[in-house]
């Protein structure tokens, strides 16, 4: 009798403390966050439908996707699409072009904002500095449509194009810069640098302001020349910014901006200028070959992922990392 009572009491206290804990947990943690959850709910729904669902949609790379059957109803085909992809030399070429153009853009374009920032930092006259910065940041705001128009107007063979006008004046004929693969690649990379350097220049300029100016004074007193100062003070001072920017751009190695490539490419240079995103657009979206192109898309994501992970690993060695 007594023991039964005791046991009963025990379980009662147990339930009691449990509900108290729950209540306390609720009032301490959830209650205050509840309005925030309500606020954030649309965001979760948005990211699930418009960011995560499309990633899941790449599952059609393993299927024979037919619009009638839907993603779920289409038949599984295993790695058929990948086998098709790898046995098609044109697909491999497209993948190669993507990596090649991106890496080339990064390797050539990466030092430009650093050099620009160091040089702008050297300018003492305020009005000159601001007007130079104003002009250098401007291209970032222009759409690729506009930049492509400028490229055609400068390097093209039409009546208005500046460069060929002068070449014709001296030699009597025009040079098809935009229709020759080698010069096209150079123009492509150059246009990218022209448009995007301003953005990173801002980053490096702000990193430069954090360097202690007394370091330069003492270095100058020790007789260090300008180039030695840059090598031993300026560059080490902005190394962490350099590394972060480099990782970010390596991480985007597969994310070739569609606008840039689509607007600059032309039939004559298709051999070097057709990249994953334009291929997917043409063969996937316009011609409706969904499964093959989503296999390519998946492969692209995979390569991008490897690039991000490796570059982050390298960055960790320098004591920097993105996550």
């Amino acid at each position: 009798m007594r023991s039964q009572n005791l046991r009963h009491n025990k379980s009662e206290t147990a339930t009691l403390t449990w509900s108290i804990h729950l209540k306390r947990f609720y009032s301490r943690n959830i209650k205050r966050s509840l309005p925030l959850y309500i606020m954030f709910l649309p965001i979760i729904i948005y990211y699930t439908i418009f960011r995560y669902l499309p990633i899941g949609g790449l599952i059609i790379a393993f299927k024979d996707y037919r619009i009638m059957d839907g993603i779920m109803g289409s038949a599984w085909v295993g790695f058929d699409n990948f086998i098709k992809l790898f046995s098609n030399p044109y697909c491999l070429k497209v993948l190669y072009n993507t990596v090649f153009l991106r890496l080339l853009s990064i390797i050539i374009g990466f030092p430009v904002p650093i050099i620009l920032a160091i040089m702008i930092n050297e300018i003492k006259k305020k009005w000159f500095k601001t007007s130079v910065q104003t002009l250098i940041y401007l291209p970032y705001f222009l759409s690729w449509v506009i930049v492509a128009g400028m490229v055609v107007s400068i390097f093209g063979q039409g009546n208005g194009s500046i460069l060929n006008h002068y070449i014709k004046m001296f030699t009597g004929y025009t040079i098809p810069f935009l229709n020759t693969p080698k010069s096209w690649i150079m123009i492509f990379v150059g246009a990218g640098i022209w448009k995007d350097s301003g953005f990173n220049t801002i980053l490096f300029l702000s990193a430069l302001t954090t360097i202690d100016p007394t370091l330069y004074e003492s270095a100058a007193m020790d007789g260090a020349g300008k180039f030695k100062q840059i090598w031993h003070i300026t560059l080490p001072g902005i190394t962490s910014t350099i590394i972060v920017v480099l990782i970010l751009s390596l991480g985007r190695v597969m994310q070739m901006g569609f606008d840039q490539i689509y607007m600059l490419q032309n039939a004559a240079v298709n051999d070097v200028a057709d990249v994953v995103v334009t291929y997917i657009f043409r063969v996937g979206i316009q011609q409706g070959n969904y499964s093959l192109t989503s296999a390519m898309s998946l492969l692209e994501s995979l390569i991008a992922f490897i690039f991000i992970f490796t570059s982050n690993k390298i960055a960790r060695r320098f004591g920097e990392s993105l996550w």
């Binding site: 965001i43 990211y47 499309p54 990633i55 949609g57 997917i280 969904y290 994501s301």
Partner: peptide, 18 residues
């Protein structure tokens, strides 16, 4: 949850189908 989508994305094709 949201930063992950900066690292990996489905690309243009699934967006189109969606």
């Amino acid at each position: 949850f949201i930063v992950f989508t900066m690292l990996i994305s489905g690309g243009i094709l699934p967006n189109f189908i969606l």
